[in-house]
């Protein structure tokens, strides 16, 4: 077992790291970025993840491309593009989230590696560009919200009907959550309902507080990356 790491050992840190430390997080090094792996209660986190858990996945890789011919360029690079406001998993597990005709957001899977993200980064050049990289890793934070109670809890913060039968897996809602703009992507883990919330990185502490408040009546709790990974089996 490797030595325990502290988020300040690494250059890249989620703005939430003090809160996570306060909740008892143990940290994993995800590509030089500290991510809460667990909160020391594997059984409790596993059960919460199935009914209501929130996990700071800001450390996982993200990328974005935006421009008048994003579709043409990313398709030429082998990305299997969905329609706007839909997400589509790629063969390497990367989730391609189409935010509009000309904008793509890429999220790595919970394994934290994305060949697609790496490939596009290598391929893109300013010369003759028809779309441009968007620094999604730093613009945004990412919170996974998992479990059956998620839609009811989210209804306290957001005006979109996110219930499972009204909001299909891999649908995207770009909307206002607790009065902040956010991107909500339904991204079930195994059979468990899950949302990935991609939000302003400077607001993650605020959003975490709102989520913590809203999930109290459903007995939700913070869970680590390990618990989210375990959902997929």
């Amino acid at each position: 077992m490797p030595d325990a790491i502290s988020p300040t050992d690494l250059v890249r840190r989620s703005n939430l790291y003090r809160v996570s430390t306060g909740l008892g997080a143990s940290w994993a090094d995800v590509n030089g970025f500290a991510c809460p792996a667990d909160y020391g209660d594997a059984a409790g986190e596993a059960s919460a993840a199935a009914h209501l858990g929130i996990a700071d996945l800001t450390a996982l890789p993200r990328a974005g491309y935006k421009g008048w011919d994003m579709a043409g360029w990313t398709a030429s690079q082998g990305v299997d593009l969905p329609d706007p406001n839909q997400a589509r998993p790629q063969s390497d597990g990367t989730l391609a989230c189409r935010l509009s005709g000309g904008e793509l957001l890429l999220l790595s899977d919970d394994g934290a590696a994305s060949a697609t993200i790496d490939k596009l980064a290598d391929a893109w050049t300013m010369e003759d560009a028809v779309c441009y990289p968007v620094p999604r890793s730093d613009t945004n934070a990412r919170i996974a919200i998992t479990g059956a109670s998620v839609p009811h809890m989210m209804a306290k913060m957001c005006g979109i009907d996110l219930r499972a039968h009204r909001f299909d897996n891999h649908r995207i809602a770009q909307t206002s959550v607790a009065r902040m703009n956010a991107i909500l992507i339904r991204n079930d883990r195994g059979d468990t309902y899950a949302l990935d919330m991609v939000l302003d990185s400077a607001s993650i502490v605020y959003m975490w507080e709102c989520l913590t408040d809203a999930m109290a009546e459903f007995d939700g709790r913070a869970v680590g990356l390990d618990a989210v990974r375990a959902l997929a089996g």
Binding site: N15, R18, R179, S201, A202, S203, V205, Y206, D213, A214
Partner: peptide
């Protein structure tokens, strides 16, 4: 209601 008041903090806030 819950009176949401968004706040943004820089990474150097603390």
């Amino acid at each position: 209601g819950r009176s949401f008041e968004p706040k943004r903090m820089t990474s150097m806030h603390h």
